[in-house]
Design a protein around this nucleic acid. Structure first.
Length: 749
RNA sequence: GCGGGGUUAGCUCAGUGGUAGAGCGUCUGCUUUACACGCAGAGGGUCGGGGGUUCGAUCCCCUCACCCCGCACCA
């Protein structure tokens, strides 16, 4: 809100609202009836701290250098032994077999025999399992703990092994782990196991080992794989159509590189464990009857379908929060009723969110949306990057590099903060920097001051006065219209591609470096009544207002507060800039001739300023500028606009097509020769060196161009525009070289 | 291991098959009557290394190195 987000707060919704809860129950029951939701005993990820099952994507895998232990399991008969490798020694208490590869010549004859499980004395079999065992890894012998490892669980199923649960839901060892271990925390148990193994000489070796450890995404506790009865969504039938809509383009993901990530995940998707042993959430609408019947129903208190009893016990588990979130686009609209809201607002257009919830939320909304409404919930997804600090590091309290946006808003204002986010959003992570925000606070200030200046010269009634006659415009006015139109086109194009950085940059560049730095300065002589007629002045005011108005509207989404404030002061037609039409490009404003001529004027001004500094003249020294215009039309243009050069380049006089004094500084700008008549004849060493450097650079470039132009294949194969470009550049370099050399000759005379 | 992204100016990042850009920072001038949160000017890059395609590669292809991020993992 403080950043200027405009929402319809009457539509605020919470996933536990009654309407949304009904949608959740309806979806659950429907999927259950279709067999897409099932309850099963399976290996799941258990967080011993949260005391709940969590889904695959809530588990974070992190690389850790831990230890791997080689443990000797004595053979029952021969007095020999097998050595297994493990990173989790405490789980050996629940081992029900050891496995070897059935083709491994070292061990294959042992399959079917037994080993004694140390510390417990239990006898467990040696089995052959080609899937579980990689003979190249470790010792080629694997201990199997079907109750506490996903791969071991599957191997256990394949080999008909019993499961012994030695770690409980609280992360402590169970009675099945044996008296000495029962009640110990799983990590304390690990130490004791190692101690005892060491004491009996069975711990053969301890090595450093890099492996991934699974952590709970919410609380960072190490996850425990466990066998547990949970509810699941059979996800593949839902994933298929969700893959298809992205593949056929009915849903696009920007930046596009995320599409492959999406496919990669969706094509290897696992069934979704949706039950949670928490008290907060949507209760699972499953009811159990004493007679053993399970009733899944949308009703609050269903009766048993089999025996008719009405005192059923509801499942105590709740649903994963993402289950209800997946329904958000339509559950918030009153679905499953065909409400007016639902028909009006579903599906929507664009979803903007963080890439970190692409799987948690976006993918699931697409799957559920298609399944229950027949349409994907949106056609465009824009994923913004993670906000990082100015060096690209993740923000964290411990690093002390956190920038709180709200504090920044207090300090600098909402507009600069908002603009900074926009201009940094290129599609990757956002390296947020205080200096950046300060820079755009300066921009806000610039907007304020430019508007203040404009308002000094604008009369309010201009708003309603007759439209500007294009035929009457001066070249500089045609130019600024052409430029504001180019900026408008660029902003619109960038926004439609979700390139907020390009859009913000385009408006920043235009407003500051074209409108303020050039146009306002060029308009001043007329606005201040120094040049031109009263008509000229009136028209200049109207143009100023028009361009400022377009700029503010263009800027409004990026800086809502300041633009609204200024708009109100300017007295807009609409009640708020929020409802004023957003500018779109108008071809009639494009003006290549104005851009060409004004480009040359600007370059002339820059050249004079530049040479002024190089020659050590001050701000107030004035010189005469001689322009050699080769076309009559251009000559007329320079003549009628010479005041621009006089004012902005601080000249005494501009003359066209006259002979310049022999010792004038000569240059060529946009093909137009100019001469600046400085009062001094002799250049300093430094100035000569400077000119020589320029000459050297041009000669080098010339050599390159000549090399290309003398290459027949270049002439033949390169597009003619490129060849022509090279030729004209050559001409320009030659004339610039000639004039620069002349400057040197004069100086040595 | 599989997949994706990155390596461009001191810092953070845009960018294009045809003479390298921005913001901030740096340096030098300037009380020019909207703005010193400013104006004007300047300096600064073998576009990660190597090879290839091309008339021409920072851009396309291959390869190597390093850095991120997913996913899957060898107990």
């Amino acid at each position: 809100v403080r950043l200027g987000v405009s929402c319809d707060w009457t539509r605020e919704r919470f996933t536990l609202d009654e309407g949304l809860s009904r949608a959740v129950r309806h979806v659950f029951v429907t999927l259950y009836d279709e067999g897409l939701i099932y309850r099963a005993l399976a290996m799941i990820n258990w967080c011993p701290r949260c005391r709940t099952a969590i889904s695959e994507i809530e588990v974070d895998h992190r690389e850790r250098t831990g230890k791997i232990y080689l443990i000797e399991y004595p053979m029952a008969i021969e007095g020999t032994s097998l050595t297994v490798a493990t990173t989790r020694p405490e789980t050996m208490l629940g081992d029900t077999a050891v496995a070897v590869h059935p083709e491994d010549p070292r061990y294959k004859d042992l399959i079917g025999r037994d080993v004694t499980l140390p510390l417990t004395g239990r006898t467990i079999p040696i089995v052959g399992d080609a899937i579980l065992v990689d003979p190249e890894f470790g010792t080629g012998v694997v201990k199997i703990t079907p109750a506490h490892d996903k791969n071991d669980y599957e191997a256990g199923q394949r080999n008909g092994l019993p499961q012994i649960q030695v770690i409980g839901e609280d992360g402590r060892m169970t009675a099945a782990a044996g008296e000495r271990f029962a009640g110990l925390d799983r990590f304390e148990a690990r130490e004791l196991v190692l101690e005892e193994l060491n004491a009996s000489g069975l711990l053969r070796e301890v090595k450093e080992h890099l492996h991934a450890v699974a952590y709970c995404g919410k609380c960072d506790t190490i996850v425990e794989p466990m066998i547990s009865r949970q509810w699941f969504v059979k996800i593949e039938p839902l994933a298929g159509p969700a893959i298809e809509v992205v593949r056929n383009g009915s849903v696009t993901i920007s930046p596009q590189s995320w599409e492959s990530t999406y496919f990669n995940w969706m094509e290897n998707i696992h069934d979704w464990c949706i039950s949670r042993q928490l008290w907060w959430g949507h209760r699972i609408p499953a009811f159990y009857c004493d007679c053993g019947e399970v009733v899944v129903s949308e009703e609050d208190a269903p009766v048993c379908a089999k025996c008719g009893k009405d005192n059923l016990r509801q499942d105590s588990d709740v649903l994963d929060t993402w289950f209800s979130s997946a329904l958000w686009p339509f559950s918030t609209m009153g679905w499953p009723e065909q409400t007016r809201d639902y028909k009006t607002f579903y599906p929507t257009d664009t979803l903007v969110t963080g890439f970190d919830i692409l799987f948690f939320w976006v993918a699931r909304m697409i799957m559920m949306g298609i399944r229950f409404t027949g349409k994907p919930p949106f056609s465009k997804v824009f994923l913004n990057g993670l906000v990082r600090d100015e060096f690209g590091q993740k923000m964290s309290k411990s690093k002390g590099n956190v920038i709180d946006p709200l504090e920044a808003v207090d300090e600098l204002g909402a507009d600069p903060v908002r603009f900074t986010f926009a201009i940094l959003t290129s599609g990757r992570d956002i390296p947020l920097a205080k200096s950046r925000m300060q820079g755009y606070a300066a921009f806000a200030n610039k907007i304020w001051n430019a508007s203040r200046f404009s308002m000094m010269h604008i009369e309010t009634e201009l708003r309603s006065s007759k439209p500007i006659e294009r035929d009457e415009l001066r070249m500089v006015e045609r130019w600024i219209f052409s430029r504001v139109n180019a900026a408008t086109n660029e902003v619109n194009r960038a926004l439609s591609n979700f390139r907020f950085d390009e859009a913000a940059n385009a408006i920043y560049r235009f407003f500051w470096h074209e409108f303020c730095d050039w146009y306002i300065e060029m308009a001043k002589p007329v606005l201040l009544g120094k040049y031109g007629t009263e008509d000229d002045q009136r028209r200049a005011r109207a143009v100023l207002l028009d361009v400022l108005d377009r700029s503010l509207r263009l800027l409004h989404p990026f800086m809502p507060f300041i633009t609204e404030e200024l708009w109100q002061k300017l007295g807009g037609v609409e009640p708020s800039i929020m409802v004023a039409p957003y500018p779109i490009g108008e071809e009639v404003l494009d003006d290549p001739e104005a851009e060409r001529l004004m480009g040359i004027v600007q370059e002339m001004i820059t050249t004079v300023r530049n040479v002024r500094v190089e020659r050590g003249f001050t701000h107030s020294d004035r010189f005469r500028l001689v322009i050699q215009a080769d076309r009559e039309r251009d000559a007329a243009f320079y003549a009628s606009n010479s005041y621009l050069l006089v004012e902005l380049a601080r000249l005494s006089e501009v003359v066209i097509n006259e002979k310049a004094s022999a010792d004038a500084h000569r240059d060529v700008v946009g093909g137009v020769p100019i001469a600046i008549e400085f009062p001094e004849k002799v250049l300093t060493e430094e100035q000569i060196a400077r000119i020589s450097r320029d000459i050297e650079g041009l000669e080098k470039e010339l050599a390159g161009i000549e090399g290309r132009l003398s290459n027949e294949q270049f002439i033949e194969r390169a597009p003619s525009s490129v060849v022509e470009g090279a030729k004209s550049r050559k001409t320009e370099i030659l004339s610039r070289l000639a004039t620069l050399r002349q400057n040197l000759v004069v100086s040595s005379a």
